[in-house]
Design a protein around this nucleic acid. Structure first.
Length: 635
DNA sequence: GTAGGGTTAG
């Protein structure tokens, strides 16, 4: 057997320091064994384990494989893998059961390479693998994407006659699926006696992981009796591939077919609601959780907080946070980012400081949240303090996203030269996103000299995407350099990259209605455009005149005014005005940044109609009320 | 007397 391509170097197995007096077979010892085992099985936290372990040592049971098995199992269940290693090192002759339970624990801790090494050690010790240990090590190979070694294990399993085992087959499908070897995954899937719902679920999530949502749906359709987990896998796959409407359709179908969603299903649907800004559906899921007594653990809690905060209801997000039974870093991350997006910078910083005081360790995501908050709130000094503390106090190396927050912040407050220097001083390589963010700030602050330098860098680094060409085009257009602007547009088309069209959506009676620029596809288009015309007249009476500078194409003034008036967010707002009750809040989600002209127009629209309007754009929330926006015209 | 099916925040 040649499985030693990976060295068993990380782990050594010292000789046992204990004397090897095995317990005798007396009735007394047997009952002690059973009581240790049942005690261990009752453990819920790690701190209960050492006293029992001490007792086992005292009674000389440290070499009883059944007791040690239970000890190791409890260590991995209570997330104490180092203690498990310690125990394992002292076992004289570990058998396949003990190796398996250790490998499982190591896999659970995410130490996939270590678990593979332990398996190698086992084979070196001439212990014959069984289907359980093969399944365990295959799981490690899948998560580590260790295809070559995984194939070797597959070969060993075939020689040992273990490949007919269902668990082994499931793990093989998972291994090949995670490694994008779908031919092999399908071959094993086809060998399964029936179209197995669990195997199908594995296939579905692997296809979804690799962006192959259609293939995932094909597999899903093959399954005759679909359970909640299988439904959840396809819904989650669609959500993660950006197919929100399809995901919601599957969710409705799931309920029509009488399959009860579980808490994981709810997390996935809440994530879809958060991305769509579908508050009504999100609320429905929330009440569903309450009605069906589904446990709101920290993941469900985080999903609820994210849903409410991304739908603009930050008060409800805070309320959920406050009543949660368990709060961990994920719940904090969700609310910190929620506060940041909703313009509550102070609250976000307060939460961040609070979690540190409570001893909860922040993650890289926490810093993206709190730095975004600083950026949106213009808190320069505080942002630098926090940014510097990442490495010095928290041992987290800043990534490009964190640097991006800093550049965004310096750009917003008009410190453009500082931002420029900051990018050059970064330890990590800059990208077109960070330079693009600075270019955008240069355009807003009309700092064309720095902008020209930034534009040159962007052209030089040559990894520009469609958004970059649009930024460049808009930058030149803002200076009236129409030819350069047009050239950037030509490059955009030459590169075969298309501009992401501006799209706004609004949820009315549980339906999501989407609008593009000048969209005329909606069944109520006539009423919508009539409303738009009425509003335009009222806007003119209020002294509003369109700021045509924001339109960067070289077209006539009259055309520019029209192009602004039919921006997708205005169409969505008009649909909201005609289809919802007076005084209710209108909530619109836009995929791009709102332009300054629409921003001014919407402020006036809240004055004219007496409605509150909540607009979520690509970067943040704008809560419009009585002619004022929560962003303080600073975004 | 030792043992597991798949799905989860940003």
């Amino acid at each position: 057997m040649s499985c030693l391509t990976l060295q068993a170097s990380a782990l050594t197995f010292p000789a046992p320091p204990y004397s090897n007096t095995l317990s005798n077979d007396s009735q007394d010892n047997a009952s002690k064994n059973i009581s240790s085992i049942s005690l261990l099985r009752k453990c819920r936290t790690f701190k209960e384990i050492p006293p029992i372990h001490a007792n086992i040592l005292k009674n000389g049971h440290q070499n009883d494989p059944f007791i040690v098995f239970e000890l190791l199992r409890m260590c991995s269940k209570t997330n104490s893998i180092n203690y498990a290693f310690e125990i394992f090192h002292h076992i004289r002759e570990p058998n396949v059961y003990l190796y398996t339970v250790l490998i499982d624990g190591v896999v659970l801790s995410g130490l996939y390479l270590d678990s593979i090494r332990i398996y190698c050690q086992m084979v070196e010790d001439l212990i014959l693998p069984d289907n359980y240990v093969i399944s365990s090590v295959l799981k490690a190979c899948g998560f580590q994407m260790e295809l070559k070694f995984g194939r070797e294990i597959h070969g060993q399993a075939t020689k040992l006659g273990l490949c007919s085992n269902r668990s082994v087959k499931l793990r093989l499908i998972e291994l090949y699926g995670k490694c994008r070897e779908f031919q092999d995954a399908k071959r094993v899937f086809g060998e399964m006696p029936e179209r197995d719902v669990v195997a199908a679920t594995v296939m579905i999530s692997c296809y979804s992981d690799h962006g192959l949502a259609e293939k995932a749906v094909d597999v899903f359709n093959l399954v005759r009796i679909k359970d909640a987990v299988c439904w959840t896998a396809i819904i989650d796959g669609l959500v993660r591939n950006g197919e929100m409407s399809k995901a919601l359709k599957f969710f409705r179908r799931m309920q029509r077919e009488g399959v009860r969603p579980n808490e994981v299903t709810c997390v996935c649907i809440l994530s879809a609601c958060a991305q769509l800004g579908a508050l009504e559906l999100g609320k429905w899921v929330h009440s569903y959780l309450e009605m069906h007594d589904i446990d709101v653990n920290h993941l469900v809690g985080s999903a609820l907080i994210t849903m409410y905060s991304r739908c603009g209801d930050i008060d409800e997000a805070e309320r959920i946070f406050n009543v949660l039974r368990e709060r961990d870093v994920t719940t904090y991350n969700s609310l910190i980012m929620g506060c940041a997006l909703n313009g509550k910078s102070g609250k976000a910083v307060e939460m961040f400081q609070g979690m540190i005081t409570k001893g909860i360790r922040p993650t890289n995501i926490t810093f993206i949240g709190v730095l975004t908050a600083c950026s949106h709130g213009g808190l320069v000094d505080l942002a630098f303090d926090i940014f510097d503390s990442m490495e010095t106090k928290h041992g987290i190396e800043p990534e490009i996203e964190h640097c991006g927050c800093m550049v965004d912040l310096l750009g917003r407050v008009g410190h453009l030269e500082d931002a420029y220097k900051f990018i050059w001083s970064m330890k990590i390589t800059s990208d077109h996103i960070i330079w693009g963010s600075l270019l955008s700030a240069c355009r807003i602050h009309k700092h064309f000299d720095i902008g020209e330098r930034v534009a040159q860098v962007l052209v030089d680094i040559g990894d520009a995407d469609s958004a970059t060409f649009i930024l460049l085009s808009n930058f030149y257009a803002a200076q009236g350099k129409w030819e350069a602007a047009a050239q950037a547009r030509v490059k955009l088309q030459d590169g075969g990259v298309r501009k992401e069209p501006g799209c706004s959506s609004i949820e009315v009676e549980n339906e999501i209605h989407e609008f593009l620029l000048g969209d005329t596809r909606h069944p109520k288009r006539e009423e919508i455009y009539k409303k738009l015309e009425d509003l335009n007249q009222m806007l003119r009476l209020k002294g509003y005149s369109p700021d045509t500078e924001v339109i960067s194409q070289d077209i006539g003034d009259q055309e520019k005014k029209w192009a602004l008036a039919i921006h997708s967010e205005r169409l969505a707002i008009c649909y909201g005005l005609i289809s919802t009750k007076p005084h209710t809040t209108i909530r619109v989600v836009k995929n791009l940044r709102v332009c300054s002209d629409c921003h001014s127009a919407i402020k006036l629209i809240t004055e004219i109609t007496g409605r509150n309007i909540v607009l979520r754009d690509r970067n943040r929330f704008h809560h419009f009320e009585n002619g004022i926006c929560s962003c303080g015209d600073y975004w």
